[in-house]
Amino acid sequence: MDLNQLEAFSAVMTIGSVTGAGKSLGRSQPAVSKAIQELEGELGYALFDRNGPRVTPTDKAFLLYEEVERSLVGLRTIRERAAEIGRDILQPIHLVATPALASTIAPAALKLVEAKGHLPEHIHLRSASAEQVAHSVLHRTVSLGLISLPVAHRGLDLHWIGEAPCVAVMRKDHPLAQLDCIDVNALQGQRAITMSNRYRLRQRINGALAGEKPLDVALETNTSFNAIMAAHAGLGVALVEPITALGMPIEGLVVKPLAVHIPFYFGVVTPFGKPLTATTQALIEAIEIAARDILHGFVKREASEHDDLL
């Protein structure tokens, strides 16, 4: 398979039609069709079900697409870096973070780096799940990753661990909004909104807030922002990490501390053994400063504490 085939496949997956993919790529519709057919021939299986001008991706196409996109991002990065080397400019920052960190601490840290004159001409900031962040750093397609913990993969350098207590978020007119602190008893009988991944934060929330009766989790979701907006709609009390709640305050909501300490842990990771550029080092330092500014009760811990904490 070659780059022409992969770009054609990616474009069709994104746009949903061969004609549209051809326009986007600046190629003819027959040329894109031929590239897809050649790719299917090499793979030995169909990527699309055809129905006139429109196509429907097969299950195998969706599985392949994620790998192809990562490879294309890597190739585009090489192209851009080659051009930048020729112009003698700073190497760009390629930063990937979980949604909560990408929308709050990452931009604040980049602004601090800019103030010190270390910010390059181009910045690539992408949000992804914790598992995808780890994958990107392991495959060295990014300079640095901000990830929720645990993360124990070989091939990652964990520079430090950030800790901050989880919070409860609710509407200002919610019955619990008048309390200074939310305890287990107050949550009994309330509709809780929290995370769906039971191997990360959700596990600690369940353990700490079990009480005599299990929490009534009315809504599970994959991001804290979704949980907070569900609370804004009046669907219950969001039990979330503090980064989104404090870093993206929303009118009409209140953020309350929990009576029991439920730590949220996140880490700064880079590819193992890869020398840090001055820009990356400056960004790592700026992330700590931004975290201290945004998070109440922020504690910086050593990377060596990972296994004992988690």
Rank of each mutant, 00 (worst) to 15 (best):
G26P: 01
G26M: 04
G26C: 03
R27L: 07
R27T: 00
R27V: 03
R27D: 00
S28K: 06
Q29Y: 00
Q29C: 01
P30V: 02
P30G: 02
A31T: 08
A31R: 01
S33M: 05
K34Q: 12
A35M: 03
A35P: 01
I36G: 02
I36Q: 02
Q37C: 04
Q37G: 06
E38V: 06
E38A: 07
L39Y: 00
L39W: 01
E40L: 15
E40S: 13
E40I: 14
E40W: 09
G41F: 07
E42H: 02
E42W: 04
E42I: 11
E42G: 07
E42Q: 13
L43N: 01
L43E: 05
G44W: 10
G44N: 09
G44I: 13
G44C: 10
Y45Q: 08
Y45F: 15
Y45H: 10
A46R: 15
A46S: 15
A46F: 05
L47C: 06
L47Q: 02
L47W: 00
L47A: 06
F48S: 03
F48W: 03
D49N: 15
D49H: 04
D49E: 14
R50P: 01
N51M: 15
N51F: 11
G52T: 09
G52F: 07
R54T: 12
R54W: 01
V55L: 02
T56Y: 08
T56R: 04
P57Q: 13
P57S: 12
T58D: 01
T58K: 04
T58R: 00
D59C: 09
D59R: 08
D59G: 08
K60Y: 12
A61V: 11
A61P: 02
F62E: 13
F62P: 03
F62L: 14
L63T: 12
L63M: 11
L63H: 05
L64C: 06
L64Y: 02
Y65G: 04
Y65F: 15
Y65D: 12
E66Y: 15
E66R: 14
E66V: 15
E67H: 12
E67F: 14
E67Y: 14
V68M: 05
E69W: 06
R70S: 13
R70T: 04
S71K: 07
L72K: 02
L72Y: 06
L72T: 03
L72S: 06
V73E: 10
V73C: 05
G74P: 01
G74N: 08
L75M: 13
L75S: 11
L75V: 12
L75I: 14
R76S: 03
R76A: 08
R76L: 07
R76C: 08
R76H: 08
T77L: 09
T77M: 13
T77N: 07
T77F: 11
I78E: 13
R79E: 11
R79Q: 04
R79D: 06
E80N: 00
R81E: 06
R81I: 02
A82T: 14
A82G: 08
A82E: 15
A83C: 03
A83P: 03
I85G: 06
I85V: 11
I85H: 09
R87W: 09
R87T: 09
R87M: 11
D88T: 10
D88M: 14
D88L: 12
I89L: 14
I89S: 10
I89T: 15
L90A: 11
Q91K: 07
Q91P: 04
